[in-house]
Every structure is written in C-alpha cells, then in structure tokens.
Design a protein around this nucleic acid. Structure first.
Lengths: 188, 188
DNA sequence: TAGTTTGTCTAGCAGTGCTAGCATGTGACC
DNA sequence: GGTCACATGCTAGCACTGCTAGACAAACTA
C-alpha cells in the first residue's frame, strides 16, 4: 500500500511542478510563451502527460495558476489589513506589479473562474472579503458591497492601465494617494 | 490618371473592408475567431493580401480597429459631456458594453498603442481630454491629471471586471451611482 | 506465471500567423 | 501596335500551436 501512496504523491508533486513551471515561464516571457511543448520539456515528460493532470489542457493549467494567485493575494491583503485602506491599496498594486504574469492569469485570462456565483472558489471570496473589510468602515449609508466592487475596480483598472503603458509613471504614487482620498473617508 | 486614382481608392476601400470585417467578426465571436484565413475569405481575397495592407499582420489590423475605437469613444464622450461626470460615466460604460470586441482591441490587446508618450495618437489624447474635462471641476487642490487617471481606471476596472463575470449584475446601476458619489463632488 | 490494468510515449491531425516564389494582368515606352 | 518592366494577387509551404489516437512497456492482480 505504501507504494500506491508514493505513486499518488509523485503524481500530485508532478502536477504542482507543471503549474510551477507554467508560472515561472509566464512570469519570464508571458503566457504566450507558455506552450504545452515547452512545459512538457521543463518537467521532462512528454506532452500528453499534461493532459492526464489537466484534462482541460492549457486553460486548466492557467486556471490552476490563477487559483494559486488568489490564495496568495488573499494572504497578502490579509497581512496588509492593519494598514487600513491605504495599506491594502498599496499591497494590492504591489502584488500585481510584482507578479504580472500571475495577475494576468487571474484576471485577463482564466475565464472559467467567475465570481458572484455558486461555484466561486472560497479563496476568491476571501479576496473580496479582505477588500470589504477595509471599505466597510467608510461606506456610511452606502451599500458596502457595491462600494467594494467599485473600489476593487479602481485598483484593477490602475493595475491594468498601468501595465499597458496607459498611465503616466510619474503620477504613480499620487494616484494611490488619490484613491485613499476618494475611498478612505466616510461619505456624507 | 483617373485610373490610377481609382486603383488607390479601391485599395483604401479594401483596407477599410478588412478592418470592418475584423471588427464584425470579433464582435460576433471574439478576437480568437479572427484568423487571417477567415478574414481573407470575408473580403474574398487571398491571405497574403492582408499583409500588403497591414505589414504588421494581425496585430496591425487589431491596432487599426483599436484606433477607430478611440475615435468613436472620443466622439461618444464628447456628446455626453453636457451630462457632466455622471453622463460621461454612463456613456463610457455603455460604450464598452455595447462594443466589447472593440473595447478589447483598444485595451486588452493592442500593445502597440501606448499613452503618455510622444507618438501617442491624437484620438487617444482626445479621449483623455474628454474625461479630464468633467473631472477637473471636482479636483479642488488635487492634481486634475492624476485624478483623471484614477477616474479612468475606475471606469476601466468596472468594465473589465464586469466582463469577466467578477461583479454582481444586480449592483450595476448602484456602482455607477457610487462612482459619481466618490468622484463627482469636490474634495475638501 | 498469465492476464489485466495503468501509465507513458511516438506520431499525427487540424489549425494558426506568416512568407517565398510564381503566374497574371497592367502600364509605359519605342 | 508590339514589347518589355512592373506591380499585384495567388498557390504552396514553413514552423508553430493545442490536442489526441493508438502502440508499447511497466506494474499490479490472481
């Protein structure tokens, strides 16, 4: 029986290596460079092995990476919660800037994972909950949930527009300060 | 000489047909479905003809579509300017919702076109100017340019997160109201 | 030991963006 | 009007993509 256990352990380890290799490659050269052949070469197995781990193919691998990303984002935001809305803002943007490939997998690609539905993974709800925690005190009589969605949209927009060279690099810190100014105080 | 004129006119018309076909196909089935072969079939010419119009290939065709998009967006926002910040907000979101494929070409893809640099096309600056026009009155002593970037990020984030099924459909109108509440009034 | 199951690989399919090189039709020139 | 050069669009093909069928070997079961 221990052999069987070792087999399944090796299998799961290999599955993790696939996702790790995909993340590393995506971070270095972007997701377009993450091909099933290169991935197979990195883990030193043949191409079809990938499909035994992820029947959904490349999309499923990206979704797995995205899920890891949401776990890490939730932890990052949780650690920044004592810093209040300003701290969470800075942490969110730093996360996206530091792991652009991962952030792409989480938002630009990975259409399988969706929010606000029954099968939404817990880690994705956890991310939203972290944002809600710092937004709620500033909501006043406004809907905290909807306000969190707007706040989140602002962060996400800042990240993606900045990535596409659409924003002035000189304004970077000032933008974050303005986010705090507009969302960090109680509405009248 | 009139024959030569007709030739160049036919050529430019064909170039426009290529972009139009690409936009139509992207709107119907997404940009992944826009292949050079299908595009060639739609304009009833062979594949290499596309490259005589757009040496940059598919990316260049998408960039051309994106440029058309910025022109139309600038016009849309200009028409909505009398409605103030709320009107522009609604117009921006409606534009993105109504032409999702075009919006994708403008922002998600089309890495060639970049803002805040010397070779930024005029129409892209015009879009930013339209947003600035409604944000400036609410800036107070805050930097109007940076604030416009934050406002724009909010709109862009709302659009993209909503597209990815990341936001609750029920909150849609409330979110727009909250945008106006947070950006439409002068900061103290 | 014989048979079955599990796992992996090789080889290949259909499709992608893009391009070299060949025809065909058009224009200019003598 | 005939000839030549040019421009224009085409066929065919390259290297690559994600993905899969079927052969083969190893491991487990009886």
């Amino acid at each position: 029986m221990t052999q069987r256990q070792r087999r399944v352990r090796d299998r799961t380890e290999r599955g993790q290596r696939i996702v790790a290799a995909a993340r590393e490659l995506a971070e270095a050269e972007g997701w377009d460079a993450v091909t099933t052949r290169r991935l197979a070469g990195l883990i030193e197995y043949s191409q079809p092995v990938l499909y035994s781990h992820f029947p959904g193919g490349k999309d499923a691998i990206m979704a797995a990476a995205a899920l890891e990303g949401f776990t890490e984002l939730a932890a990052t935001l949780g650690a920044a919660r004592p810093g209040g809305l300003g701290g969470v803002t800075e942490a969110y943007v730093a996360f996206a800037e530091g792991k652009p490939g991962l952030y792409d997998a989480m938002f630009t690609h990975a259409s399988e994972l969706r929010f606000a539905e029954d099968d939404t993974p817990e880690v994705m709800k956890a991310c939203f909950a972290e944002l809600l925690a710092v937004v709620e005190p500033t909501a006043g009589d406004q809907d905290a949930g909807a306000l969190t969605e707007v706040f989140w949209s602002t962060l996400h927009g800042l990240v993606t527009l900045d990535r596409g060279r659409r924003l002035s690099p000189a304004h970077r810190d000032e933008r974050l300060a303005l986010v705090v100014a507009r969302f960090g105080t109680r509405a009248d």
